Simulated assay, not measured.
Amino acid sequence: MRNNRLFTAKDSVVELIEHDYNVLTVLSRFSLPLGFGQKSIGELCDESGIHTDAFLLIINFLLTGEIDSASIMKVSPADVVYFLHNSHDYYLSYKLPHIRANLISALDDSHGDINPIIVKFFDDYTELVRQHFNYEENVVFPYVRKLSEHVDSDYSIDVFRRHHDDEIE
C-alpha cells in the first residue's frame, strides 16, 4: 500500500478505494459500511461515529508509511485502540484461517511426511499471534483507555515496548 498520496476529509471514499482497493479491509476494521455512494471521507466518518482525524491518520500511515505529526495530536489513543481491536478480530477470525486453508490446499499430497510439520509450524505461529493479541487486548488496551480517561495505572508502556521488542528479535 505504500505511496505518497495523503487523503483529507474532503476526498471521496470512492477516490480512496480507487487509489488502493486494499483500503476496503481498513474500512471494515473501522466498522464503516459499504454503500457510501459519493460521500466524502469526512461525511462517512461523521455519519458512522468514527473520528475522521483518527481514520485519516491510520489510512494515510498505511498508504505512505509515515505518520503526520501535526494530526497525531488530534487523535485519541482510544480511537487507535478501537481500530487495533478490530484488526485483531479481523486477523484471528478471517485472515489467518483463510491463509491456513490456502496453505493446506497448496500442499502437495506426495509430501505427506512433511505436510503436517508445515501445518503445525503455521498453527504454532498463529498461537503466538493469538497470545500477543490477547496480551494487548487484556493488558495494553485497557492501559491506553485508562490513560485516555486520565486514570492512573500500575502498568507502564515501557513494559510493553520491551516485551514487544523481545518478540521481534
Rank of each mutant, 00 (worst) to 15 (best):
I118E: 03
N102G: 12
D68L: 09
E136L: 12
D79K: 05
P97D: 00
Y143T: 07
D46P: 04
G49W: 14
N4T: 11
Y155V: 03
Y82Q: 14
S28R: 11
H150P: 03
Q38A: 14
Y21S: 08
G112V: 07
P33S: 08
L32F: 04
V13L: 15
P142K: 05
E66R: 10
V140Q: 07
V23I: 12
M73P: 01
D89H: 14
R100C: 05
K146Y: 06
E15P: 01
V23G: 09
N22H: 12
E18A: 13
E137R: 10
N3R: 08
H150E: 14
F121H: 13
I58R: 10
I118S: 01
Y155L: 05
F83P: 06
N3P: 07
M1I: 06
L103S: 06
F30T: 06
L84A: 11
F30Y: 05
P97N: 00
G37T: 04
R100S: 04
H164R: 03
I50C: 00
N102R: 06
V14M: 15
F133T: 09
A101Q: 09
S31A: 13
H98F: 03
D20K: 01
L16Y: 02
L34Q: 10
H163A: 06
H132P: 05
N134S: 11
Y90E: 06
A70Q: 13
L27H: 11
F160N: 15
E167C: 15
I99R: 03
T64M: 07
H51G: 01
V139G: 02
K10S: 08
D165N: 15
H98L: 04
S71G: 09
E127I: 00
Y155K: 02
Y135K: 13
Y21E: 01
F7A: 02
Y21C: 03
A9D: 15
D79L: 03
P77A: 13
E127M: 03
K120T: 13
H85V: 12
Y135T: 10
H85W: 13
R29D: 08
E15H: 07
D46H: 12
N22K: 09
Y143K: 01
F141K: 08
G37M: 06
R161I: 14
S156V: 00
D89N: 13
Y143N: 04
R145C: 01
N60L: 11
N86F: 04
H164S: 10
N60E: 13
L147W: 02
A54N: 09
H150Q: 11
I168P: 03
S28T: 08
S87A: 14
N60K: 07
P77Y: 12
I58W: 09
